[in-house]
Design a protein around this nucleic acid. Structure first.
Length: 599
RNA sequence: GGUCUGGUAGCUCAGCUGGAUAGAGCAACAGCCUUCUAAGCUGUGGGUCGCGCGUUCGAAUCGCGCCCGGAUCACCA
């Protein structure tokens, strides 16, 4: 709620008290922005107040409207449509609002953290080291990064973290395949990106494994038996045991191949523009988890069975029993997460922990929360699982086995190519050097991809249509970037003409409807940032920037800025444009999207 | 089967802490560049908000039941 709404709401409470002698609270004052088709700025829904006034909605609205406009003078005039009291503020109020916003400049809408502000840790990305990142990871990374920025903008300290799943049977499969059929291939020798190279061997393992099973089945062995007795799988398992035992050959192979993957991931992260303040590795945390679980057994909050396995009994919470340590004493996924959590809370004074992980793991986090609580970690209950929906393609789910997975690097490269083609066709960057133009193509391409993904409600399963994602018209990132570039162009030309952009404009200036509508939209920004933080939703910000841009383009189309002969009006429009550009850029910064100065 | 979750225009999505005649974009059709970037603006057509019942002055929004889809319920991660 901005200060104009606050003043109005409190005025309504006072009016009701004076008129009807009844105290109503803020929740009964339903003030909303007036819909476009009606005249007014804010609308008071009077139905909830009829109980108090004991009069018809129309009469109640008239009485309150009179009081607000004539006694309190917080509104200029009003009209009533079917129990809705539409209030109009005078132009001066809105000019004042614009001046206020402009004065805040880059700070507008953002809350600065103080030393006392809470520390929020956001975990996102969390890749496996056996294959390259794909479209699903992209949604995770974009959401995680944006969420971090949004939480920061709401006045919190944020630590972005990544837990790398660097150990386990999956990486052993890649390692084994490389050892068997790799002929010493390296990223350097092949010119392939490290994560892609390792991914190829993961696929090779899978193919060889399937071939082995098929061969055995053809020889008359049951499928289940063939799988259980797979020699290849046995070798992979053996390699994992060797790794856990610290076998030098295996460990050095593991280190080498993981380093290839990290080098590859770094490139992808850099291209996507995401980063981390602290990276954890499961190879370093799983043992801690095991210790914590064993302590839990001693404390009697966890149960050890006769076969040696350790379980958490969650039946009191309506769930089942959950395994935490295998019969052979090795850790499972849950155990690793417990260890990682403990390590993090030792490293930082975390007030809130947010896990950005897909909704397929809802159950896992429900359990993790309960188990941490059982183990005596006070923060266990309050952990937040930011559960986002899966990404599907128009033809359905992505399946790695069927090769329908969209590779992150390929996708971004495609987007850049399209951005380049469109831009060259339009000739907008003529005169730019090749390097400068390439930089803009990347900004636009990433803007298209990020906006396409972030504009949809994170909780929902989304369809990624490659054809639509490279469309740069309509509700897209490039459309919003374009508007920004356009304002920038006006600013440049203003400077060339020696027009100064004032810090504030005279409050008695009468603004036209489009200008007022634009200011009203700008005034919503702080509430949007707050709502996005509360709802954990970058989509709220994305949809707002779109509405703001549509409003600006209408204004831009209808009124001339530089050719306006009235210097006062021209100055006001310049300030309005500049302020819009700042809000757009700040809004997009919350989504991790850059703005091009030209396009 | 239990739990969770979704169903809004041909397609992709907003709107969901109850409020006015349910909105955008894409796709289709029709206009607007000698004027600040046409990656833009304007207009037309397109809807039983899955179905039913209930609560309410008022339901796409809340509750219950049903239909359809998805996720999950591993000594996988």
């Amino acid at each position: 709620m901005n200060n104009i709404e606050q003043i109005l709401s409190h005025a309504v409470i006072e009016a009701v008290n004076e008129l009807y002698g009844a105290k109503v609270d803020l929740s009964q004052v339903q003030l909303q922005i007036t819909r476009k088709e009606f005249e007014g700025d804010y609308t008071l829904v009077v139905f909830p107040l009829v109980k108090v006034s004991k009069k018809s909605p129309e009469i109640t609205a008239t009485e309150i409207g009179d009081y607000l406009c004539n006694i309190q003078r917080v509104a200029e005039k009003y009209n009533i449509v079917k129990g809705f009291l539409n209030l109009s503020l005078n132009s001066t109020t809105w000019v004042g609002k614009l001046n206020e916003i402009a004065a805040e400049q880059e700070e507008y809408g953002f809350v600065t953290a103080t030393p006392e502000s809470p520390l929020v840790m956001v975990e996102y990305s969390s890749p496996n080291t056996n294959k390259p990142l794909h479209l699903g990871h992209i949604r995770n990374n974009l959401l995680g990064y944006a969420l971090g920025e949004i939480i920061k903008a709401n006045g919190n300290h944020v630590v972005k973290t990544n837990i790398v799943n660097d150990r386990g049977i999956h990486i052993c499969k890649s390692m084994l395949a490389w050892q068997k059929w790799g002929n010493g291939e390296t990223p350097e020798a092949t010119g392939k990106k490290g994560d892609h190279l390792v991914g190829e061997y993961y696929v090779k393992f899978d193919k060889a494994y399937k071939a082995e099973i098929a061969e055995k089945v053809a020889a008359g062995i049951e499928k289940e038996r063939a799988e259980a007795n797979s020699e290849l799988m046995a070798e992979a398992r053996e390699m994992l045991l060797k790794w856990e035992a610290g076998d030098e050959t295996v460990v050095s192979l593991w280190k080498m191949m993981n380093s290839w993957v990290y080098a590859g991931f770094d490139v992808t992260y850099k291209t996507m523009g995401v980063d981390f303040d602290k990276i954890y590795y499961e190879s370093e945390t799983y043992a801690i988890g095991r210790d914590v679980v064993l302590e839990g057994v001693e404390k009697g909050v966890l149960n050890r069975r006769e076969d040696g396995s350790v379980w958490a009994d969650l039946t009191a919470d309506g769930l089942d029993e959950k395994l935490l340590l295998r019969r052979d004493g090795t850790s499972v996924y849950m155990t690793q997460d417990i260890g990682t959590a403990k390590m993090r809370f030792n490293d930082y004074a975390i007030d809130k922990m947010i896990y950005v992980v897909g909704n397929e793991q809802n159950y896992h986090f429900q359990v993790l929360s309960l188990v941490l609580d059982k183990l005596g970690f006070s923060w266990g209950k309050d952990l937040v699982h930011f559960s986002y929906g899966m990404v599907e393609l128009p033809e359905g789910k992505m399946k790695s086995r069927e090769g329908t997975v969209v590779d992150a690097d390929d996708l971004i490269a495609d987007m850049v190519k399209t951005a380049r083609e469109v831009s060259e066709e339009l000739g907008k960057l003529d005169g730019y050097s090749k390097e400068e133009a390439e930089r803009i193509y990347r900004i636009v391409a990433l803007g298209a991809l990020k906006y396409f993904i972030l504009k949809v409600d994170p909780k929902k399963t989304m369809t990624f249509n490659p054809r639509e994602s490279i469309d740069f018209n309509g509700n897209t990132g490039p459309f919003i970037q374009y508007t920004y570039a356009r304002i920038n162009s006006v600013m440049r030309k203003a400077a060339e003409n020696g027009y100064e952009i004032p810090a504030a404009i005279a409050s008695n200036l009468q603004m036209n409807g489009k200008e007022l509508a634009l200011i009203k939209n700008l005034s919503r920004f702080p509430a949007i940032v707050a709502e996005a933080g509360k709802a954990y939703s970058p989509a709220v910000v994305a949809n707002y920037t779109y509405e703001l841009v549509k409003e600006y383009n209408q204004f831009y189309h209808e009124y001339s800025i530089l050719n306006e002969t009235d210097a006062v009006k021209r100055a006001a429009r310049l300030l309005l444009s500049k302020t819009t550009a700042i809000v757009l850029r700040k809004g997009f910064s919350l989504l991790g999207i850059e703005m091009p100065e030209r396009m």
